[in-house]
Design a protein around this nucleic acid. Structure first.
Lengths: 104, 104
DNA sequence: GCAACAGTTTCATAACCATCAAACACAAAT
DNA sequence: ATTTGTGTTTGATGGTTATGAAACTGTTGC
């Protein structure tokens, strides 16, 4: 999900993907680890979390699909980086959607 | 989930519940409707959404459980109100969790 | 080439969950 | 008290998904 979130908020489809991606505690934990450094290797995640590499790969795919992380390939290694603008756009859109309009 | 979100962020358990509650598009849409007015009746939701009242009731239960809405009983009717402080606390905690700490 | 390592994909499985229908509980009105 | 209306609970069902194992792809180094 490569979208421009410049002036207009998150597209509805991406909004749903982000919400879904954040809903799983394990995936959220993975995102937190990635966010704790400037970038985070897949290897480190595999060591840190008690799940198979297949499962890690699956979660990374979902996070990328939602636009929450960016992937960098370096030889045989993969590095991930959190896209905080997307996260910020999500929270902004979330608050906007429940901003009361009618009836004061 | 009745928690004091005064100075300290959302408790981890409630954080997970909120994330889960927001992940379903229908439930999110229900929350948006409730938030579009000062308060919203269950009746109105049942008319507005093409799902059974059983399903509406189920979603309301989840939203209450997450602390995202408050419920008021008035005779045979139910009214819901969005708890924006909880939503704000969730987004704050979300951003806090991915706020980079080490390695600049 | 071959072996070792890093990730991905596929397949199967179990758990979860959104949904409906129907039965239920409760309130209001006749 | 009986009926009607509003919401809840229960049971069943189909769809989604988190997970592991194993096969696969690609890269590094011998």
């Amino acid at each position: 999900m490569k979208s421009e979130i410049g002036t207009l908020g998150l597209p509805p489809k991406q909004f749903d993907l982000v919400a879904k991606a954040l809903a799983d505690p394990r995936r959220m934990a993975l995102l937190e680890s990635i966010g704790s450094e400037r970038e985070y290797s897949c290897q480190k995640l595999c060591v840190e979390f008690p799940v198979s590499k297949g499962t890690i790969s699956h979660h990374m795919k979902e996070l990328v699909r939602a636009g929450l992380i960016e992937q960098r390939r370096e030889g045989q290694y993969r590095f991930y980086e959190v896209r905080r603008e997307v996260l910020a756009a999500y929270t902004a859109e979330l608050m906007r959607r429940v901003a009361r309009v009618s009836g004061q």
